[in-house]
Design a protein around this nucleic acid. Structure first.
Length: 566
RNA sequence: GCGCCUGUAGCUCAAAGGAUAGAGCAGCGGACUUCUAAUCCGCAGGUUGGAGGUUCGAGUCCUCCCAGGCGUGCCA
């Protein structure tokens, strides 16, 4: 059983027993903290249960702690009465009333065996109960290459999905294409202008057009493909054909970028298809019929202010064109209609003002908690400390592909995930490349490669590397401080996965893996794994294999590879 | 003006209301005839933006102020 769970149960039992024995007045077990203390002197685990109880009981927390500590001690002695060892080695009261707990060696070793037995499923949970989640992320306009900022959402979205899957949810990844509306027209006009230019014809570049060099690249590819045949067609037809093919090209490029980054989407939803199927128009009519939308000033408004929005929002402009909002309502209802229990959208912080109206719409349609929006702060791209200006319109930009090419897929993924999405991310390309050897991702991967190296060395020495779990009498040779530290750090993984999934915080995993790698490296520098002592060698091999397993499991959630050698 | 996010070591960032606020980088000094020195050990570095408040206990919660980012469209 998860150590933290067992300890919690033991503490609750101690409280109830103390109440039953009349040592403390009747009280419900309070919320209390059970954590791994920062200071080693405070034991393997510590709880503030006595401090929490003293608030309700009005008695000295030290007295309560003494009572609980004695109960815990007696409890663990009872566990050991049948010859085996109890869970606890020692229980001490310290400070204002903390109870510091040290685990018995056998309890630690038993948990280690569980890690080995569960293997790649160690750290997986089932509390998601198979509920179907749809996570929508990246969702860039298909009018050019992805930029660096999209990379953060790709890394974050995919890692979050993997975390949710580890928690037991059934997750689909979805990319929403805003392939309808004015930006597509501008894109088509921009490509057409470059196309005409390349063909040596007169052209007029649209005032608000896309100036990036990639537009000309697309035009050049189109021209090479068709040899200028569209020039024979009427202007309208020509533009729509070129625009359509340019869109397909841009989309295919985006799909290639995501695929090579290792992100596989289950669905590529199209706004245009929704529009053409009449889903948007139909939803607007339905909202009016249901009294949730109304006409005013020649436009159609949705009464989002009745559901917590600051004011009502336009669904259909007085020009007759539907807004992005109208399409988004139809789109999100479409997702719900596809059977999802919960929707998660990852949006850039610049869409912050849009969240409330979207949730108001969902509430109006009967899904008050159906949509969860994760806002991520933006990426500030730098090169050697100097900010890199990025604008799709002017074309000054570093593309996502270029970044991945330059710093590598693992480093890019990992660096994107080192910070909370609530924090703007400074991404210095030069630093990521130049200091790649000091990059935290390599620190973690190196620990994995080192363990593989140990196993290779052992194999060369003829050491028995079968995956069998050594017996307890052998495992008990793991009695050094560094070995215990490594084991206890390994055990943090399971709860961390749960907490990170619930808090939507993949970045906690990077921090943890660095801590785990650090504890391993310390162990490695103090102790030889492969030695002349066959039993000790077997025990230590077992320990480092457990560490390797957890590093693997953690990196897998982040979508980062675990190399066998570096 | 209003709303959201952020403010912690020289830099980049961590810390479900807990004990002496931690890592990495940069700086200084050490450790390889030993399984990978992409590592490890040590030193130095702080009024957690500021002021009040709640609490046995606040970087964390509340109020106000300061600074930065984003938003506040019949744009997407």
């Amino acid at each position: 059983m998860l150590i933290a769970k067992e300890l919690r149960e033991m503490i609750v039992a101690a409280i109830n027993d103390a109440v039953a024995a009349g040592e403390i007045p009747p009280v419900d077990a309070p919320d209390f903290v059970l954590e791994r203390p920062r200071l080693k002197a405070h034991g393997d685990w510590a709880t503030n249960a006595a401090l929490a109880l003293s608030r309700n009981l009005g008695r000295s927390p030290r007295d309560i702690a003494d009572i609980l500590a004695r109960r815990l001690q007696e409890g663990t002695e009872a566990q050991g009465a049948d010859g085996g060892a109890g869970t606890l080695r020692s229980v001490e009261v310290a400070g204002p009333g903390f109870i510091n707990i040290t685990l018995s060696q056998d309890r630690v070793l038993g948990e280690l065996v569980r890690v080995a037995n569960e293997g790649e499923t160690y750290g997986r949970w089932s509390f998601g109960e198979g509920r179907r989640f749809n996570v929508e992320f990246v969702s860039a306009n298909p009018v050019g290459p992805l930029h660096v900022g999209h990379g953060r959402w790709a890394a974050l979205g995919d890692a979050l999905c993997k975390l949710l899957e580890a928690a037991g949810y059934a997750v689909d990844r979805e990319f929403y294409l805003n392939d309808y509306g004015s930006q597509m027209d501008v894109f088509a006009a921009s490509v057409e202008a470059r196309y005409l230019e390349l063909a040596g014809l007169e052209f007029e570049f649209p005032a608000e057009g896309y100036h990036g060099a990639y537009v000309a690249d697309i035009a050049r590819a189109l021209l090479a493909e068709d040899g200028g045949r569209p020039l024979q067609k009427p202007p309208d037809e020509r533009r729509s054909e070129l625009g359509e093919r340019a869109y397909r090209m841009a989309l295919s490029h985006i799909q290639d970028s995501m695929a090579s980054f290792g992100v596989t989407f289950d669905a590529w939803a199209s706004e245009r298809e929704l529009q053409q199927a009449g889903a948007v128009e139909k939803e607007v009519r339905s909202l009016i019929a249901d009294g949730l939308a109304y006409e005013k000033d020649g436009a159609v408004w949705m009464a989002t202010s009745r559901f917590g929005d600051d004011k009502d929002r336009v669904l259909v402009r007085s020009s007759g064109a539907p807004t992005y909002f109208a399409a988004d309502i139809a789109y999100h209802l479409d997702k719900m209609a596809r059977g999802y229990d919960h929707l998660i959208n990852i949006w850039g912080a610049d869409h912050h003002g849009y969240v409330r109206r979207m949730q108001a719409a969902m509430e109006a349609r009967g899904y008050p908690d159906g949509l969860e929006v994760i806002l991520g702060q933006l990426v500030n791209l730098k090169r050697g400390g100097e900010p890199v200006r990025m604008s799709k319109r002017t074309g000054e930009m570093v593309t996502f592909d270029e970044l991945v090419e330059e710093v590598g897929r693992d480093a890019a993924r990992y660096l994107f995930l080192t910070r909370s999405q609530d924090t703007a991310l400074d991404f210095d390309i030069q630093l990521a490349v130049e200091e790649s050897m000091d990059n935290p991702v390599y620190y973690v991967q190196y620990a994995h490669a080192r363990i593989c190296s140990i196993l290779r060395y052992g194999s060369g020495k003829g050491v028995d590397l079968s995956e069998d779990v050594p017996g307890m009498e052998i495992l008990r040779l793991l009695e050094s401080e560094e070995e215990a530290d490594l084991a206890l750090k390994i055990f943090e993984f399971e709860e961390l996965v749960r907490d990170a999934a619930m808090d939507r915080a993949p970045h906690r995993l990077t921090r943890y893996l660095e801590e785990l790698a650090a504890v391993f490296h310390v162990f490695y520098n103090r102790h030889r794994v492969i030695s002349d002592d066959a039993e000790l060698t077997a025990a230590r091999l077992f320990l480092v294999r457990c560490a390797r397993q957890v590093i693997r499991n953690g990196l897998a959630i982040l979508g980062v590879s675990a190399p066998e050698s570096m």
